[in-house]
Every structure is written in C-alpha cells, then in structure tokens.
Design a protein around this nucleic acid. Structure first.
Lengths: 240, 240
DNA sequence: ACTTTCGGTGCACAGATGTTCACCGAACTC
DNA sequence: GAGTTCGGTGAACATCTGTGCACCGAAAGT
C-alpha cells in the first residue's frame, strides 16, 4: 500500500509530544510516535548508557503511557536495534555525499574530514549513540554496531582498490588500511562529540590533528613494500 | 570471588562471607573486602555498562550487605573512579615493561603489540572496563578515563621525541602521532577483547593487522615534511 | 580491663521499574 | 452505516533499587 501522505517532516527537537497532529492517517501517526520514541531515547543518552535507559522514562518523554511502548517495540533491545539501523542510514547518506564530491583528490583528506565534521554536527545524536554504544553495554547492540562498522570498512576497502596507487594492493592490506582509516575517523568523531559545541577553537584543533593523522597514513602508502619483497624493516624506509 | 547468588531471601546464621583468612589485621580485612567490591563490579561488567550496575548486586556478590558498601565508597561513582585508578595503574605497569625491553628498535612494533596483547590477557577485566567505559555512560568516569589516556599519550610523545628520526619534530606533530598510535593500540585492545579467548587464529589475525597498521604509520614518518619546509611530499594531499 | 573505633548487620522506607490485563474510541474496512 | 482494527489508556502486580537508622561484636587504643 503506497499512498503515503507526506506531511511536514518532523516535530523538531522538543522532548514532549506537544500538541497532537490534527490530521493524519493512522499509520502515519503511528510512525510519528515511533519516531518520538526513538528521539526520546537518543536524547536521554546524554548522560547515561543505553543499558540504563528505562522504558517508562522513554515512553513518558515521548508522550505516551508505558504500556503504549509495546505497540511499537517489544522491549528496549528492539528499540536499540532500530536506533542502530536509523543511525547507520544517516551514516551511509554521509558516505554518498562524500563520494559525490570527490572530483579531484588533491584535498581528499581535508574534504573527508570536513564532511565527517559536518555530519557529526547535523546528526549529533545519532553519532553520539553509535560512539557510546559501540563498545559498551548491551551485547546485542554492540554486535549490531560492530557488524555495521565492519561492513562499512569493507566498502571503503573496495573504494580504495579503485585508486591508482592502491590498485595492486592485496585485499588483506587494503582492508588493513581501510580499517585504520575508519578507526581514525571514529576517533575523530568521538573527539568532536566530546569537545563542547560552541568552542570553534577546540574543534579546529581536532580537525587539524585529524587531517595530520590521515596525511601521515597517506604518506606511508607509497612506501608500503617498495621493492615488492616481503619483510618489514621499519628502519629501512628511506626518503626519496 | 564468590560470584554465586545468594538465593535465600533471608539468610539465617549462615556465615555469608565465605571463607576469609582467619588471621588478619582489621585494616587488612577492610582492604580485602574493598578489593572484593572492585572485583565484583569488574566481573559484572561482562554484559552491562557500569551505569547499570546496582550497588546492591555488587555488594551481594562481594559477600557483604548493601549498607556495608558505604563503609568503603560513598556511592557507585566513587567505586568507578577507584576502578579507573586501579586499571591505569596496571596499564602504566605495562608501559614500564615495554620500555624495559626496548634494546633494538628493528622490531619495536612487533614487541609493542605483543606486550599489549599479553597485558590484555593478563588484566582482561581492567582493559574491558576502560574500553567499555571510555566512551560510554557515566560522565565522571568517562572524563577520568579520557584524562588518563590523554596524559598517557603525552608521555608517549615525550618518549617519541627521544628517537633520532623524530627529534626535530614539533611538539604538536609529536602529539599527533602519539595520539594516533595510542588510538590504534586502543582499537587493537578492543578487537582482542571482542574476539573470544581461545581462538588463537582470530587473535593472530588481529595482531597481524595491528602490526601492519603501525608499520604503515612508521613508514609515513620519514616522509613527513622531508624538506623541513611546507610542501607535503607525496602529491597526495596538499591543498589550500 | 576499660573504652573507643569501626566493618558489617538487619530492618524499614519510598520510589522506580517491566509487564499483565481489560478497556476505550477513533480510524479503517466492508 | 455496521463491524473491525489498533494505538493509546489506567490500574495493578511483584520486584528491585538507593539510602537512613539503630545496633552488634571484635579489633585497636589506653
């Protein structure tokens, strides 16, 4: 059944349900309160882990009664998984915009970091959620996030393989570097989330450091197994 | 130690403390139950975040009654901060042993990763604690861990400054690379913690990837501003 | 041998939590 | 227009939580 009426997007960040949407089809209203539940959970993650969220409190600040919660999810875990899905949907959207603007690669590093930072600001709560729950708390959510990130890293490896100076790299090495890049980006996102919003100096410092990190990694790439032979020989790497 | 649940609702005259060393000075026994509380908390972090730990449950599995908890900490937060301190004490101990064995630096990477892995196994619960609570949950604990890690990164920067090929680096750049190294190590530790113990193949893979990451970073170092002036060496990433 | 200190106990309380159940009324189906 | 679906309600439950209080008994101090 298509026929979805598209009303205005969402009701802003207000934590209470405020006034009831006057006119809406039933499934549309259901979708709205479902979104309100997700939003309420995201907001309450400011000073608590997902595992310490209470169903009642989430329902309350979403504007419904505790038992109404079960009309949408059959427990907090399912709500959490929905949050993972939603968060990574916006993340993939970020990747798309990153791929879109990659005409020249002279400043690919700067551009990537800038896109990352912009999306962290635009979807702060989503990033905070995955940053917070990535390593912590409820196992099922941790697993889900880890799977998404791994998948994500694999996609980046495929992208990297297309680049000229990486075209002859082994799959294992490609995945290594993509993993390193992803982890670096994750660290950067976490740093930005921790730095308080409204302090542009601190954020610029983070961005600066992130760009340097990525540049350092990029500088290592041409030196990777320069002779095609094995072996590490860290000290052996010489300048051109 | 005694993680067993005391099923009976009202304990009669059963000595709940299990067996304790019969002879001990009072302050020594206090230290012991304090340690039991810390241990109990660490163990219960397996499938929950620190924020969802309950004072009662921790006290129970430590073998004391809930109110007895307050003889040692005045709340779970303080217990958490004690855990942070304890955990980083063992971490610094690791660093010392890392510094001890650095005779030759041909395989400094391999040696570092190996030390990291060994300590993760030896102090699994401590590492799991800081990995879990690093980004999540209770703000006060998160801050404490972040401060420790930042301090830690600074110390590493000082160490790096002593190395010949890094001696002329600026403080900012040194801190950048130390931060990158620390984050990489943290990621490696998290990966090892996630991989189940007893699967040596998976772990070898993680170690292998970690060594490659560090090598790639190391290979970038000699290329870092080779002429001392602007102009990043590889055409990879300069821009305005 | 006395007094003090203090880690640990037991009880009690008010509040919060997840989940059940029967019920309502407006939106949907026919 | 009659009947059904279904998102939301409110009361009730058993259970768990953190914390205050008075008390105990043995170790420590004198």
């Amino acid at each position: 059944m298509s026929a979805e009426i598209r009303a205005i997007g969402h009701n802003g960040l207000m934590n209470s349900r405020a006034v009831i949407p006057p006119r809406a089809t039933r499934s549309e209203r259901k979708r709205q309160t479902r979104e309100a539940l997700l939003e309420a959970a995201l907001e309450q993650l400011e000073d608590r882990g997902f595992g310490s969220l209470s169903l009642r409190e989430v329902a309350r600040s979403a504007g419904i009664v505790p038992t109404g919660f079960y009309r949408h999810f059959d427990g907090m875990d399912e709500l959490g998984l929905a949050l993972v899905e939603e968060s990574f949907r916006t993340l993939r959207q970020m990747i798309r915009s990153a791929r879109a603007g990659r005409t020249d690669m002279t400043n690919v590093i700067r551009a990537s970091v800038e896109i990352l930072v912009r999306h962290v600001h635009e979807h702060r709560l989503h990033f905070r959620f995955i940053a917070r729950e990535r390593s912590s708390g409820v196992p099922v959510i941790r697993r889900a996030i880890h799977n998404e990130i791994r998948l994500f890293s694999s996609e980046l490896a495929v992208d990297l393989a297309r680049m000229p100076f990486l075209s002859d790299w082994s799959g294992e090495d490609l995945h290594m570097v993509s993993g390193l890049l992803v982890d670096t980006m994750v660290s950067t996102a976490e740093a930005i989330l921790d730095a308080d919003p409204g302090d542009p100096a601190a954020e610029r410092e983070i961005v600066r450091a992130a760009e340097k990190r990525l540049l350092l990694i990029a500088l290592g790439v041409p030196q990777w197994r320069p002779a095609g032979r094995e072996s590490a020989a860290a000290g052996a790497a010489t300048a051109t």
